[in-house]
Amino acid sequence: MSTSVDFLLWVRGPGFDIALVVFLIGIVIRLLEVLILGRKPDFAEPRGAELGAGLRTLVTRTLPEQGSFRRSPFTVVGGYIWHIGFFISLFLFIPHIELINATIGLSWPGIASNLVDAVAAVTIVTLVAMLFSRMSHPVKRYLSGPEDYLTWLVTILPMITGYLAYHRMIDPYPLALGLHILSVEILMVVFPFTKLMHAFTFFIARWYNGAMAGRRGVQS
């Protein structure tokens, strides 16, 4: 690994392959680990159907309950901003779409790069603010362990390296691009072993919550 190009070639070659293997195997294992556990049969006569209520909760939990919003507006709004910003940066930035198109053949329209740039800046700032909130809010500080800070770090790193690469603030460019790809690979590798898994399991969690409440006739 003598030059930045060698580094880039490694991260987008073997590095990417390793990350992909860990990411995919990890996620599939985690999901099956959860799902295969199953549920005991429920003999209580249902008041409502599980399916509709479960699916509704899947959607409705995206919006905060009013009282929680009033009590923790920062967590809610900050959470929205950075999640949306992250997804815009990830999926609407044209080079990313190109990458996805080149690897799996799916494509969709992107948005102007300078707009993504602004979104990314806001996302980074919000993530930093979220970190401060995590370190200062009594509940979040109490709950947080090394994993919470690790996942924060591996989430913000691709944003920062992407921002730096886009603005060419790391020299030479192959190094910038390589660091960006590497940071994404770190994210992919860390993903299945941490709370980042919520990106997949929250579907299951919301569904169970909604279904179990729906069975009792409550829309949770």
Binding site: G13, D17, L20, V28, T103
Partner: peptide, 25 residues
């Protein structure tokens, strides 16, 4: 393009997911 992985991602992913299903099961 410079950032595109060299490997056949879809084929690899299929194997990997297959392996994941086996391990997950």
């Amino acid at each position: 393009a410079l950032s595109i992985p060299d490997s056949d991602v879809i084929r690899n992913a299929a194997y990997v997911v297959g392996a994941g299903v086996a391990l997950g099961a």
